[in-house]
Write a protein that binds this DNA or RNA. Structure first.
Lengths: 347, 347
DNA sequence: TGCATCTGTCAAAGCGCTTTGGAACGACAT
DNA sequence: ATGTCGTTCCAAAGCGCTTTGACAGATGCA
């Protein structure tokens, strides 16, 4: 069943049927009803390829999935994708995924853009001075960045969370509790969010005249395994840190294992605040000692980004070009006053 | 630049240019060269939407990504996707991903099929009596299954590994080494591969008159965390098992942590064989005690499946409808003779 | 030389939709 | 009656490609 047949069936022109279906105003409500009814009965579905050719819109957004022999496919990516997808399905959009080596992200992105299969691009895992940004700007295709790129002119559309503020606030809380020795379990050092979180922590510390020794910072992929290893190293330091900031609840999972194995008590000997992306299988309140967290839902970000991107393609704007979401600091049991004995040397 | 302009530029008809580009034989080689040269110079790219409308082929394969509030997005899925993508890119295919609740897989698959965005479907995470199978067969769209569905008529195209044989062989090796008390760290119990692996183990055991107690089987998602928990339970049993079969190196990772924490020696007190999907960041030879494994590359399976699916769409067949890959049993240090003292009560 | 057969090319007809530029009609005011 | 709108609908022209059917011109065989 195609439009022509349907219109003949109804004794209407293709124009009218098309307009009825696409919600144009210049069609009688009674006629529209009749059309809609016929669609239901016949099961007519417009041909996507034809629509696409006629409108020039593919109804899809493209993204590059970083992948390589040594690449961790991490849960955060999957969670974000879920949000993106939820919203896309709602609008009958789909997304096209191009897997690519992380070293060839620029090329992959360009290929995706000129492939003609997508209307818009989505980009994540931003780095400082990200080379994809100039390329994206040179393309005449809408795009949206999740995160930001420190060192780049901030003249591109993005959605990010306020990573500096999140870790600044978290650090302030721990400082108020009397902690002076901090350590940071961070994500990969070249990624923007990791840089900013570190900056937030450093800023809070320097307000108190404190600094963050380099050996108290760990940059790794965000798996619990690596979180554990890094934490073990921290715990073996002669003057071990009492306050830990952690870029993911996944890292925290491993870190806490290390704390337990060292026979230390979380929330007493060691205070820990993790950033919580609201991963469904890793709820901070379900940890044996519930985790104090900075929270911002990754999935919600995915939904919002899809909304904006799809809206832009459909020209339903205007959307704010740049959004910076605040995180929530939620205090649970993993934070407590700095242990006395260790705090004597402090400020 | 479109075909019409290009053909005018060359003083040829659209027909000839189109044929030159698509490798049809009825065009002079010299002419073809000239066309190809012009394409290079002008940067002409055929419009995908128009091609699609004219040919009826979308150049894409569709798949459903299981996702839900409580769903683990696991590394195995990502790894497989990578293989799929690698091959797709090579053929200028893309894949369309529809996220869906695992409880609505059938509906999601149907929606994807009728959306008109895909030429073929790929399906994984097969269950016993999988309800998607009858639906897929009713569709007139090529599809390919990764895995099989025990309890369903095996009349659908699939690619699977011989899970029974893998775990049968693994179990035999351990039996030959004198082990009599087995435990199984398996994937989710409703999934076909898990069922078959258990069957393989049970078959090997029953040949020796042994059985597998229900409390020696653990069915969980395949994360190291859950592997550890399950293994801890096994180790606390009064007559603890000495031979462990493990459905993933990810599970093994956790399991081994439990073994170490119990102060036991892998390959001496406990022998363990894991199935190795050849995950890039988890090489069995890099474990502190290198792991004996049954091996079959998930990524390679992805590549092969993409090949077959794309070939089918392009009508380049014939491909074998059903492929069953043998796994390799690779002996490393995590397997050894059953400990004497514990083995006295055995066969 | 005549006739059949290839070769290389082309014009034109789709593919199924959207959208432009009217046109028919009744209502309303002049 | 005439002109002006607004409403509701339509015919036809694309969108950019593939593919069918036909046709010159070259070639082979008798």
């Amino acid at each position: 069943m195609n439009l022509k047949q349907l219109s003949e069936l109804l004794g209407l022109s293709q124009t009218t049927v098309s307009r009825a279906l696409n919600g144009y105003p210049e069609v009688n409500e009674a006629t529209r009803e009749r059309v809609l009814q016929a669609v239901k009965e016949t099961g007519y579905r417009p041909n996507k390829a034809a629509q696409r050719l006629a409108t020039g819109k593919a109804g899809s957004i493209g993204l590059v999935m970083p992948t390589a022999p040594d690449h961790y496919s991490d849960v955060h990516f999957g969670e974000f994708l879920t949000g993106l997808g939820e919203e896309a399905v709602r609008h009958d959009f789909h997304f096209v995924i191009m897997p690519a080596d992380p070293n060839d992200e620029v090329g992959a992105l360009r290929r995706l853009a000129i492939s003609g299969n997508v209307d818009a691009l989505f980009v994540a895992y931003m780095r400082g001075h990200d080379p994809r940004l100039p390329m994206l700007k040179s393309l005449s295709m809408p795009f949206l960045v999740h995160g930001r790129s420190i060192g780049s002119e901030p003249d591109y559309p993005y959605l990010d969370i306020d990573n500096e503020a999140a870790f600044y606030d978290a650090a302030r809380l721990l400082l108020q509790l009397g902690h002076t020795r901090f350590a940071l379990l961070n994500g990969p050092g070249h990624l923007d969010f990791a840089i900013r979180r570190k900056n937030g922590l450093v800023a809070a510390l320097s307000e108190r005249g404190l600094s963050l020794p380099e050996d108290c910072v760990s940059h790794t992929s965000m798996t619990d395994e690596l979180g554990q290893t890094a934490m073990e190293r921290f715990l073996q330091m002669p003057e071990r840190p009492t306050a830990i900031l952690c870029s993911s609840t996944v890292l925290a999972l491993g870190a806490i294992r290390a704390v337990n194995q060292a026979g230390l008590k979380l929330g007493e000997d060691i205070s820990l605040i993790a950033h919580d992306d609201v991963l469904p299988h890793l709820k901070p309140e379900n940890f044996s000692v519930p985790l104090t967290t900075t929270r911002s839902s990754l999935r919600a970000a995915g939904v919002r980004i899809a909304q904006r991107l799809i809206g832009t393609v459909k020209q339903e704007g205007p959307f704010p070009e740049q959004e910076l979401w605040k995180t929530e600091l939620i205090v649970r049991a993993s934070t407590g006053p700095a242990p006395r004995d260790q705090n004597l040397g402090g400020v």
